[in-house]
Design a protein around this nucleic acid. Structure first.
Lengths: 199, 199
DNA sequence: GCTTTTGTGCACCGATCGGTGCATATTGCG
DNA sequence: CGCAATATGCACCGATCGGTGCACAAAAGC
């Protein structure tokens, strides 16, 4: 989002527009969100969208980045918690809230944005797979550190623990997309953490 | 799929064609599966598809039914297990296998078939939401019975336990869609069942 | 004021979307 | 045989898809 010093200034706020686009992708998925849907909600013309963001795929990339930095910022904070257990607790509690935030679409953009798609959605699907795997990798690294620090038992499997936590998170996203309430999901998170470490 | 006694007989096997259609929906989702994708894989013309199955939405309904009766038949068996714990074990083990079946798309049609969609996919999305909630309801009923039978402690919450099990299943579907291996998912299932009942 | 640079609005592009009309082919029944 | 009933192949429908060409508007630098 480089600043243009010369030429006619754009008449819309790019960040606001991107926020709107993010919501549309979140709600309808990459393939289900048409350029008409997107630009109407962004309040700009197709031409302005292409000038500011490149194309639909790039818009999706930037929307996901905004999602990561905003909606999912709890994840970075979770990784900084003192103990592995607190990491998992914070991560799952954040997921519960993000998946059921009033005024936002239910569920998770990173899950429902492009899970099964046709030819035109392959790139978006791969971007999201990478995104989820990346997040899971950060959890694994954190749990690896926890093993080294003696916070988790020596025999613990950081990869499995990360996958366990992420699987609960993914599942809650599907539950939320299906209309599950925040309290119900939090109870699931609590139940999943009763057994810790999970392996 | 009524048998027509009179008139020209159809030249294709409707069950085989439906199976192929199911795989396309499973792989690409409802919106991502175009009529061209579907009919090419089914090996029939658009006209034959419409004559035999109605329209795309009806084809999806029938594909989901076939999915339920075939791929997901383990679920019905799981409900018949002797104890609540065995129900959960069988259900999750079946999910692991169904989500990572060689020769089939990774993941679950009921999850990735239509999670976030545009206008044209709303009906399919609602069908799948209903489908997932229905399955979860059957689990809850079974766990309710388990409480009555004393198989689960008197204070146990069948609704929460069913949601817990289904959340793991949903999460594994997302994991599988992202490329997770069968063994890794089974380890997650094992970990999730170490704590039983989960609440 | 003039050029250069960038943004905007509108009409339009070829391709594809889900779905259909029609002529023809193949069956059972009389 | 003729007739009713169903299936098939192909061309085609209007609508929508992602993306663009072009004329014009609004800013900075000279």
């Amino acid at each position: 989002m480089e600043k243009a010093q010369i030429g006619r200034p754009r008449e819309f706020d790019a960040e606001e527009a991107l926020q709107k686009a993010m919501v549309v992708f979140w709600e309808q998925g990459y393939e289900g969100a048409s350029l008409t849907d997107l630009t109407e909600r962004m309040g700009i013309s197709r031409k302005s969208m292409y000038a500011a963001f490149g194309n639909k795929e790039e818009l999706f990339r930037k929307a996901l980045q905004r999602y990561s930095e905003g909606t999912v910022s709890y994840a970075v904070e979770a990784l900084q918690a003192a103990t592995a257990r607190e990491v998992a607790e914070t991560f799952l509690a954040g997921s519960v809230r993000a998946n059921t935030r009033p005024g936002c679409p239910a569920g998770c953009l990173g899950v429902q944005g492009a899970l099964a798609v046709g030819e035109t959605g392959r790139v978006a699907r791969d971007i999201l797979t990478e995104w989820r795997n990346g997040g899971q990798g950060l959890l694994r690294d954190r749990f690896e550190r926890a093993v080294e620090e003696g916070d988790l038992p020596a025999g613990a499997d950081p990869d499995l623990i990360a996958r366990y936590v992420m699987t609960i998170g993914n599942g809650m996203a599907v539950q939320a997309a299906g209309g599950a309430a925040r309290e119900d999901l939090q109870r699931v998170a609590d139940a999943a953490l009763r057994n810790w470490p999970p392996a």
